[in-house]
């Protein structure tokens, strides 16, 4: 379960972030052309590569117990945020993420923006928008890859998981040449949030001195508990929402 779960969690987390970045890249690419869009993507990926290459070895120098407390704690906070958003969306208290609306709004803004070159880039607007999207969405993936890799001691698995998630989304996006609005993003976020929460809880607890009943198998029952608790919370919020609306 440990390695398979790690691979799945990283692949799905990377896929969700890739869907959001791809929506912006496609909107800019089809509206302003690809001459400045591709350099923006490549520059963004280069920055992510530098960040990952710098942070990865730095984390590897920290002893495992404190590393797991820090990394597990941050992963746990991050996972809980995803889970909270997914529960609130599922309960009707937060709007669902709408890739079609994001795409339309990016296309509208890109159509009206002035076209001006800078630093040898033919369209500075397209370059900076795409660069920002790739870096900001990609930083979350890079962080998950680094933390999962460092805590589990299997950086290779984490990198492969992220690559699978990103490549699947990019291939699908360029095949349909449209935002991937049919991807059940909230359901995926729900699952990934539960997985990040589980791994974060396991590593942070272990780093702080907890001895989990069942050892590594605790990941399984922690995941089951987390998913069941989140599903119950979402069902409870839906009931409250319905009662509020019909009152």
């Amino acid at each position: 379960m440990g390695l398979a779960g790690l691979l799945l969690a990283v692949a799905f987390a990377a896929a969700v972030e890739a869907v959001e970045a791809l929506t912006i890249v496609l909107a800019i690419g089809v509206t302003r052309g690809w001459r400045a869009t591709w350099p923006g993507v490549i520059a963004g990926l280069a920055v992510l590569g530098v960040v990952t290459a710098a942070l990865g070895p730095a984390l590897a120098r920290i002893p495992l117990a404190p590393l797991r407390v820090i990394v597990g704690g941050v992963l746990l906070i991050f996972g809980l945020q995803w889970l909270r958003k997914a529960i609130l969306r599922s309960g009707g208290y937060k709007a669902l993420h709408d890739e079609d609306a994001t795409f339309a709004s990016e296309v509208s803004a890109a159509s009206s923006a002035q076209r001006a070159g800078r630093f040898g880039v033919p369209d500075w607007y397209a370059f900076t928008i795409v660069f920002k999207a790739v870096v900001l969405e990609g930083l979350e993936v890079a962080f998950i890859v680094i933390t999962f890799g460092a805590s589990s001691g299997h950086v290779g698995y984490a990198v492969v998981g992220a690559a699978i998630g990103v490549l699947a989304v990019v291939a699908a996006g360029f095949a349909v040449r449209a935002p991937l609005s049919r991807v059940p993003e909230n359901a995926i976020k729900f699952g990934v949030g539960a997985m990040l929460t589980t791994f974060g809880m396991f590593w942070a607890g272990e780093g702080a001195g907890a001895e989990w009943p069942g050892g590594e198998l605790a990941i399984l029952w922690l995941l089951a508990l987390t998913a069941a608790g989140a599903a119950l919370a979402a069902a409870g919020l839906r009931r409250i929402r319905v009662a509020e609306v019909t009152r």
């Binding site: 746990l76 809980l80 609130l88 929460t197 607890g205 989990w212 009943p213 605790a218 919370a233």
Partner: peptide, 25 residues
């Protein structure tokens, strides 16, 4: 025994956070 403290803290924190969120949608 310390293992139980983190799951309990996580469950309580999430419940509190959700409660605050639905009061201030």
């Amino acid at each position: 025994p310390a293992w139980w403290a983190l799951p309990v803290a996580v469950a309580a924190t999430m419940a509190l956070s959700l409660r605050r969120a639905i009061r201030r949608p």
